[in-house]
Design a protein around this nucleic acid. Structure first.
Lengths: 193, 193
DNA sequence: CGAACTGTTGAGCGGACTCAAGGTAGGTGG
DNA sequence: CCACCTACCTTGAGTCCGCTCAACAGTTCG
């Protein structure tokens, strides 16, 4: 889609499929900063310095709607509500990021994974898809990078959830069996046995 | 300054002093999401849903410039470059947040603290203040929340840095003695003895 | 002075990481 | 079709970093 350093030209709305955004640390590790699903918009990272700060690639067969910023900008000049709407979109990205910050700081592996699964579940539901049967387009490695864990830990926690009958895991196909248990995990510092 | 849930009316530019933004988790813990120093702008979190998602308070005697969004918006309608500039400001906030995400995910306590100190150092330097003698307006607890650590760990790492002669620490007054050592710490996975 | 708060320091524990081995699936070429 | 390779995932054993619990020191303020 675009790469770190490319000149900023457009923002993108995911039409179908999914996108991951990531950057490469000084030590060469890939750091995933976000996953984007249909209806979600990405690419704002390029606005501040007129070049993209991250790399965005498709995780599966994906179609996006490219929205040239130039046009959007002109349109915004004539229709103020467009400008306003854009700003809200960006602000929403900030809120999403800061929720992730809160998640990364001071939550256990189980809580992190639980949050991610529920988030994906909710977002899939917004598209009218099942909120219990979900398909993870990203690899375990990408999940671990996003959540600040290792692949092994992600794998182990998924196994643990399965043993607890919270989930049924088949490769990238997940069925949420006990959504409340996952929610409880997030909202309590107590270990639920 | 403003509280979580307050209707969104304005953004703020720090004139002098410093600001912290935080939210309260479901379990009652305070999660710091950002520190803002002179020249920096905060308050965008309220834009998306027309009420602030976080609470912002001053860490010391602080003066801010309140910029009513209504006025800014009208101004933007007549002067497109204002709109553009605003969008850049928000985009910059996104980049800042995502750098924090990268920091929180997969960095050691030493790397996190090192990054924060260097960041504050750089930002203080932008105001023409010394980049080596810095004053931390926030408490250890606020630092630990921001970095996803505990107070004890923050204290210990500061002690460690002092023993290594990277820093001289006197309560909230920090002198950076070996900036390169701190930078090296961030950029290497290797333990530097 | 004593209370409350913040910060420092120590001992011990445990969760996530590291290292290592093995399993599974998809792709390629013989 | 099978052998082989590669990439991804899972599982196990052991280690270590950061957390927890706890005691104590320094400050502020009544």
């Amino acid at each position: 889609m675009y790469f770190n350093g490319d000149p900023f030209t457009s923002i993108y709305a995911v039409r179908s499929g999914s996108i991951k955004c990531f950057c490469i640390d000084s030590d060469g590790r890939e750091q995933v900063t976000g996953f984007y699903f249909p209806g979600e918009v990405f690419g704002w990272d390029g606005l501040a310095d007129e070049k993209y700060q991250k790399t965005a690639i498709a995780l599966e067969t994906t179609s996006v709607c490219q929205i040239p910023y130039e046009q959007l900008d002109e349109l915004g000049n004539s229709i103020p509500s467009i400008q306003k709407y854009m700003m809200k979109l960006i602000s929403r990205e900030i809120n999403t990021d800061q929720r992730l910050i809160a998640l990364l700081a001071g939550n256990s592996a189980q809580q992190k994974l639980s949050s991610l699964l529920l988030s994906i579940s909710d977002r899939r539901a917004l598209q009218g898809l099942s909120s219990t049967r979900i398909w993870l387009p990203m690899s375990r490695g990408e999940i671990s990078s996003y959540l600040g864990l290792t692949v092994e830990t992600v794998s182990r926690v998924l196994g643990h959830f399965q043993r607890k009958k919270y989930l049924s895991v088949n490769k990238k196909e997940i069925e949420i069996l006990d959504k409340q248990a996952l929610r409880d995990l997030i909202h309590s510092t107590e270990e639920v046995e």
